[in-house]
Design a protein around this nucleic acid. Sequence first.
DNA 1: GCAGTATTTGGTTATTTGCGAAAATATACC
DNA 2: GGTATATTTTCGCAAATAACCAAATACTGC
Lengths: 109, 109
Amino acid sequence: MVRGKLNKSKAALRAMVIKSLAHPSRVLLVDALGGGEMCVCDLTEVVGSDISTVSKHLAVLKSAGLVSVEKRGLNQFYRLNCLCLADFFRCVDSINQQQSRTLQKACIG
Amino acid sequence: MVRGKLNKSKAALRAMVIKSLAHPSRVLLVDALGGGEMCVCDLTEVVGSDISTVSKHLAVLKSAGLVSVEKRGLNQFYRLNCLCLADFFRCVDSINQQQSRTLQKACIG
DNA sequence: GCAGTATTTGGTTATTTGCGAAAATATACC
DNA sequence: GGTATATTTTCGCAAATAACCAAATACTGC
């Protein structure tokens, strides 16, 4: 974690990337793109929102540097830029599992 | 990443945890807590905001399951619940590095 | 050029978030 | 009990976010 070396501007950079993933639809998008590049119309079906909404979510991911785009014909094909997101989500999932265990203990005994 | 197995409610759970880290101050807090437990008053100096603001940020981290609290005397001592955040931030930092390289190429070369 | 498809952008509205000040709560000490 | 310290909660407000619709843009093929 490189403790203590973290100033505010570096924290802001980190937060910007994290923020770009802090929405259910964008989590779904990144997960879907883990299987390879996809066009907006197909991603729209994955998310189930209006295509303009999905397009904006993709723009957020792009400006954070998580995905890149290539236009071929009428379609914009989005793909993941980073391979490390698997670890990222593994950590997130482990927190959720731990949290649900903790809540169970607290409620049920 | 367990592709394709991600439904909306699991994505929402992930997003909730990610969201709790999606703020510069909360990134700073988690980084500081990487060095061991700290009380709110000390964390307030790290972040440099009003103590009520810091308290609220800590509450967000707590409800997401990232930290836990123990009261001793007048102080509330917060500590990290999960060890995996190092990987998490490593991934985030690598995205930022890659992104800044990409932007440099686009602007300068 | 015109029609058709894919995507982005702009406008509007509703909701959420973040902040500090002030009030409330909890504990320690005399 | 009364005062001091540490923390959380409440309140009001400003700013950011997210959703959809409609309009604009970009490309393809006739």
